[in-house]
Amino acid sequence: KKVIATKVLGTVKWFNVRNGYGFINRNDTKEDVFVHQTAIKKNNPRKYLRSVGDGETVEFDVVEGEKGAEAANVTGPGGVPVQGSKYAADR
């Protein structure tokens, strides 16, 4: 997939743990970017499923997906693991 931007910061608008996807609002352009659970590179080690939490600040790359921009290599700011959704089960 073609990389559009790297190391972008954004805020998770919403993320559905059961369906495994959601949207991140970019801090720079204010665009909403699709995020799939497979794009989460550093999950919270205490969580079973990969997820990001609503309102969480994340860092990610933006790539060209089939339906427009989507997030890739999602981590917390500075490459730390994401916090994850409060609806995702703990280990």
Rank of each mutant, 00 (worst) to 15 (best):
K1R: 05
K1V: 05
K2Y: 09
K2E: 05
V3Q: 06
V3T: 09
I4R: 06
I4A: 05
K7I: 02
L9R: 11
T11R: 12
T11Q: 11
K13R: 09
W14I: 02
W14Y: 04
F15L: 01
F15W: 04
F15V: 00
N16I: 01
N16G: 03
V17D: 04
V17W: 05
V17C: 13
R18C: 09
N19C: 15
N19H: 14
G20K: 14
Y21D: 02
I24Y: 00
I24E: 01
I24R: 00
N25L: 14
R26D: 02
N27A: 11
N27D: 14
T29S: 11
T29P: 01
T29G: 05
K30N: 15
K30E: 12
E31N: 14
D32N: 05
V33F: 03
V33S: 00
F34T: 02
F34S: 02
F34G: 01
V35P: 01
H36N: 04
A39F: 06
I40V: 14
K41E: 13
K42Y: 15
N44K: 08
P45I: 12
P45N: 15
P45L: 13
K47M: 08
Y48G: 11
Y48L: 12
R50Y: 07
R50C: 10
V52W: 06
V52M: 09
G53W: 06
D54A: 12
D54F: 13
D54M: 14
E56R: 03
E56M: 06
E56G: 04
T57R: 11
T57F: 13
T57N: 14
V58K: 00
V58P: 00
F60E: 01
F60M: 12
D61F: 02
D61C: 07
V62P: 00
V63I: 15
E64L: 13
E64Y: 12
G65D: 09
E66H: 14
A69G: 10
A69C: 13
E70L: 11
N73G: 09
T75M: 11
T75W: 03
G76S: 07
P77M: 10
P77E: 13
P77H: 06
G79R: 07
G79V: 04
V82L: 08
V82K: 04
S85G: 07
K86H: 11
K86P: 09
Y87D: 05
A88Y: 06
D90S: 10
R91C: 14
R91W: 08
